[in-house]
Design a protein around this nucleic acid. Sequence first.
RNA 1: GCCGAAGUGGCGGAAUAGGCAGACGCACAGGACUUAAAAUCCUGAGAGGGCAACUUCGUGUGGGUUCAAGUCCCACCUUCGGUACCA
Length: 797
Amino acid sequence: MGNYNFREIEEKWRHFWDENNTYYTDVRDFSKPKYYILDMFPYPSGQGLHVGHPRGYITTDIVARMKRMQGYNVLHPMGFDSFGLPAEQYAIKTGNSPIDFTYKNIDNYIRQMKLMGLGYDWSKKIATCDPEYYKWTQWMFKQLFLDGYAKYEDCPVNWCEELGTVLANDEIINGKSERGGFPVVRKNMKQWVINIPTYAEKLLEGLDELDWTEQAKTTQRNWIGKSKGANITFEVSGTKEHFTVFTTRPDTLFGATYCVLAPEHKLIDTITTNECKKAVEEYKKICLTKSDLERTELNKEKTGVFTGAYAINPVNQAKLPIYISDYVITTYGTGAIMSVPAHDQRDYEFAKKFNLDIIPVIEGGDISVQAYEADGKHINSDFLNGLDKQEAINVMCKYLEDHNLGKATTSYKLRNWIFARQRYWGEPVPILHNGDECIALEDEELPLELPKLKDFKATNGQAPLESAEEWKYVNRNGKTYKRETSTMPSSAGSCWYYMRYIDPHNDDTFADYELMKHWLPVDLYVGGSEHLTGHLIYSRFWNRYFYDKGLVPHKEPFKKLVNQGLILGPNGEKMSKSKGNVINPDDIIAEYGADTLRLYEMFIGPITDTAPWDTSNIEGVKRFIDRIYRLYFELDYINDKQNDAVTKVYHETVKKVTENFEKLEFNTAISQMMIFINTVYKEKQLNNTLAENFIKLISPICPFIAEEVWQQVFKHNESITTAKWPTYDENMLKNDTFELVISYNGKFISKQATPMNTSKEELIKLAKDYYNAHPKDGKQIKNVIAVENKLVNIVLE
RNA sequence: GCCGAAGUGGCGGAAUAGGCAGACGCACAGGACUUAAAAUCCUGAGAGGGCAACUUCGUGUGGGUUCAAGUCCCACCUUCGGUACCA
């Protein structure tokens, strides 16, 4: 008993699938409906996969397998987001090449994935660090450059000194670098930036048509951060200078008592009076050296200094002192605000600290305590008096526009995408510099390959490629140009990889348009929610830009998105090397087999929830697989007889499993399959045909044992992967009778078998008869509620 | 602070067009098989009370709607995730 040798069996089918190219997809076969199912491709780290990673991969593998069996032409590829910091740091530390390191890791990932039985079509494999791939990343960047979306400009960036590079907003967590947790400061630098904010509106609109959770959409909407308001121009008193503020509350303009410029604001030097110069300079210096974390620390006291200059309120000519303070951010709005302390808590705190006027312009609240930010009738506001917030905003906007003092504007939190890293291990930027002139490489010069370096370390804040002396200089049209020595961020290659899978070896274009038209958008995309504000914004932008250019056939790349939950370590903490709670799938597979690992990860709970790893539960699902094995190979329950109880459960199971798989509810699908197997064990009987079909049902989750049964027991020569998915008979699910629930005052009392579709009148009669036979405390029936085919509730006095 | 998700046995979790709470599994207990153990098979089980049929209490807390609430409404508490002075 129990001699299920999973090691031998799994090894056998692994080879069989490899040798028979079982998971190969012919993308030019349009005869069947298509289904494109995609995982977020991993960064191939040196540690390999832990058991948390495959949760998503198993999910997509199950759906891919079912869809294949349902007659779809399924594209289910995998690749590697293989540029990135860890390989470079490893190279610096060990003196090895990041290239060899990366490819070695990729091989290990592929080995692990095959070990788990993930049915990827490896002929479509891509790696973003392959020159054949990044040729097109560079080509696409070139288009962005030629169209003016990618610019080389002086801009405030997030600088990480320890990493020696700039970082994007989504690479910073709590003011520290995502990689390494080092402090990040603000700095002005000439950098490659991509103007995504111009696509903010399109990215917002595009969300509406997507089959994503509201949560995912909301996260993106918040990140894009659309605010309606107005830009208002203020003259600087006694000068010819002026500046513009952005406000969402133009209706409170009469309550403005001062203005604040961000410390980086260009006008500061011009307008600061001599008496204030010293203090202003000092304050600016402090701001520059503060890390982002220090600048945004919780409950921080407001700081700032007076410039000595005054702005003129355009609607009532009031003189407003101009301050600078780091509570105003240079990268949002115009980097300048008008302050209305009566109706904005931040302004209120600043005003209290610096003893500035607080003038209420809206009724309600108590401004001796705090700012009043709610709606109300306007006061002290001339032509706005008596109006509520929205009316006042409309009237003020019209007034500003009519008098050429400002205009209604929309602002977004979404910022420029800093598209350069002072790193080696990334795509070279295909640009040549000569002074202020930037030119793109010719298409024939792509890919621009990374030169081999001896030392990958950045010195003196310079990019590692600065040391590639020969590579660095290029003659063109009689002039000497210097190559761009920053490389692209790792989010570059992941912006379009889902296109390349469709046509991975095309040398003429990034992907054939007709093939993309057929295969895109991705039908189901599974990956972690941490990518919502990075990768999933960038790739949607990338796709939309190329759609607008007519090079990509669909507006949106990912029709349905699912974010799988984390698997925590046995101690309930996030798995990490440093916490020592990492579980390696290789170990689990060696001990229990890949089928068990897959089944366990799917049985653990809803895939969108976080769940702790619990080894004792693995034993339970292993037991279930053993029961299946025994049923097919050892017990003699399977024959050509029929058994009504089993047949009924069988049809329920086909229905439930099919529906559950479709909705990615694997834990309940597995429960149902357990119920089926329990029934068979109880009845000690299973019809041949049902036995053959049941193994198909479980094959997406447990492909190894399913293949073993399919080929050894049922003597098929082809993989179960190509079998036809079972269907159920709706008639078999119907019953002649149902269990009528009888309750008193809503409390369950009893139930009795009753013919289906018994009329309400008869149910009520039944209920009354029942009550007469089983009265309670001599109480009288007040009412009887009957629900057909379900219950009767007897309401007592 | 703001946005989002979630609180159900000893544990992971089922059940929402409102209708038998705790499916399925783990751990636990008992039985069968065995010289014995493991494995396997069968049975039991939310908590309290009763020999018992039975009975009371039970889905984070407090209210409410309803014949009927884990499910709907209001207020609150807790946990997790995201975000961070966005004017």
